[in-house]
Design a protein around this nucleic acid. Structure first.
Length: 442
RNA sequence: GCGGUCGUGGCGAAGUUGGUUAACGCACCGGAUUGUGGCUCCGGCAUUUCGCGGGUUCGAGCCCCGUCGAUCGCCCCA
């Protein structure tokens, strides 16, 4: 039998849920505008090698990618994350030639990962992400975190914690890696299978293993902070002090290493403390990368960014009982008192729409009572009642739902009446771009 | 990829030592109220139908197998 269900780990988004997405997307665009980050849209799929880089050990890249061969025999991959494609584009379009560094970007779109779905973990999920490339300065690290926190606060989340750590520069990491290997070598057979694999590929990841968390060797493991070069140490403490100056509370987590292999220096993760988030508690996370731009053939430039899961954000909002859905009420609803008046009602509807009023009508000739129920459901502020007697004189009844006031007006004066009742409020829903500061209502 | 729980109308949800006409609530539609909604009352609302496909049985929403999906934990991450 044909399977017409949505594919596993994907969803249809519509109705009330859609209005939440609109609200979030609007906040994102506003915020990025204020911060001066420009939107960039890179393809939903890329050549596989854009994502699968040499000696990458992460699961995202090695086990979860949607990879396929296209009709031209090329290996393509649906993007599992936002950074790689963006850096590829940055280099390919020579955006490093921009005299005003750093370059600041944001993106918003779907990511694809073949995983076993859970709440807050989808095979298609949407990420809002930022990347700032070209200037390596603790101020930038702080700015990126600030931007993310601003969004999360604008949306109303409270129950959050900012975890931060540093992986240091390459030299620091190599030293630390050697120290870890030396430390775990004698006991490696006592650790879980995953850890034995990590020992070879990326020993840093043994540190946040939950299976072996209680093992003596993990508790006594060397700390990254003892292996940082002076420069790396200073960079991290500068990041912390900038965050402190700007009133971002953070928790230093020396076991935070993150899943993608390209990070260096600052890494961070903002997690929800709410229990209902379950094991998918990271709302956004990211870090700095020193070698990625060069890897893609560009100059040696450092960058930093984060990815934020929109689905996760929505789960977190739910967990904290925050409803950001929007009513999307109608301005006008046109009611007809007899089925043969429907064409006239339709003309009036279009008349109102041309004037910019969000208008709907009854197309089915239902009972008057049923039509009025629609008025309520659609949240219309004004009802136009098309009746036989009035229409003969080219008039209609117009009722203001809020005040219950009802008048009979000439069709020619209809819009005038709507302007009088809805005019002021209406300006705010016109969809035109307002300059910042013009939004004085609220 | 591993383990547990679950899947009944648009939604919520009864239904278990397998015997039926598949409760109830919300929403929706019609009427009481033939041109003015939100309250009340009356009526309608799963047309072999209980995610899908097989099996056991005289008989299955309830039992068995498979499959698809959701969910929780692990893993991983946004």
């Amino acid at each position: 039998m044909a399977n017409f269900q949505v594919p596993r780990g994907t969803q249809d988004i519509y109705g009330k849920e859609m209005t939440k997405w609109h609200a979030i997307e609007e906040l994102i665009r506003q915020l990025c505008y204020v911060y001066g980050y420009q939107e960039i849209r890179t393809p939903e799929f890329e050549h596989t090698e854009v994502f699968k880089r040499d000696n990458d050990s992460s699961d995202v890249v090695n086990k979860e990618m949607y990879t396929f061969v296209d009709r031209g025999d090329r290996s393509m991959t649906l993007k599992p994350e936002g950074t790689a494609g963006l850096i590829r584009s940055f280099v390919e379009n020579k955006m490093y030639a921009n005299p005003d560094m750093p370059a600041k970007f944001y993106y918003l779109g779907p990511c694809f990962r073949y995983e076993r779905p859970q709440k807050g973990r989808m095979r298609i999920h949407h990420q809002f992400g930022t990347e700032v490339i070209g200037v390596k300065n603790p101020l930038i690290d702080a700015e990126v975190i600030l931007l993310g926190m601003n969004l999360v606060q604008a949306v109303g989340l409270k129950d959050l914690k900012v975890l931060i750590n540093t992986l240091g520069d390459k030299e620091s990491r190599l030293n630390y890696r050697d120290a870890l290997k030396a430390h775990f070598e004698p006991v490696i057979t006592e650790l879980c299978g995953d850890c034995q694999r990590r020992f070879e590929q990326n020993p840093l990841r043994i540190l946040d293993c939950k299976v072996d968390a209680e093992h003596e060797a993990l508790k006594s493991a060397p700390n990254i902070h003892d292996y940082l070069t002076d420069e790396s140490k200073k960079y991290f403490s500068d990041v912390l002090s900038v965050l402190d100056q700007n009133e971002v509370e953070v928790e230093i987590s020396d076991r935070l290493v993150r899943g993608l292999d390209y990070y260096s220096h600052t890494v961070f993760e903002v997690v929800s403390m709410n229990k209902e988030m379950g094991s998918q508690s990271t709302v956004f996370g990211g870090g700095r990368y020193d070698d990625l731009v060069e890897y893609f053939g560009g100059p040696s430039l450092s960058g930093i960014g984060f990815g934020m899961g929109i689905e996760r954000l929505l789960v977190a909002l739910d967990a904290e009982n925050i409803d950001i859905s929007e009513a999307e009420n109608f301005d006008v609803y046109v009611v007809s008192l007899a089925p043969d008046l429907l064409p006239t009602a339709f003309q009036l509807t279009n008349f109102c729409r041309s004037a910019g009023y969000r208008t709907d009508m009854d197309y089915t000739g239902r009972s008057f009572k049923a039509q009025f129920k629609s008025v309520e459901r659609k949240g219309a502020g004004v009802v136009i009642i098309v009746g036989e007697d009035e229409i003969k004189e080219n008039k209609v009844a117009v009722k203001n739902i809020k005040t219950q006031e009802q008048v009979i007006v000439e069709v020619d004066n209809l819009i005038e009446q709507l302007d009088a009742w809805l005019g002021e409020e209406h300006e705010c829903h016109c969809g035109h771009e307002h300059a910042e500061g013009e939004h004085n209502h609220e």
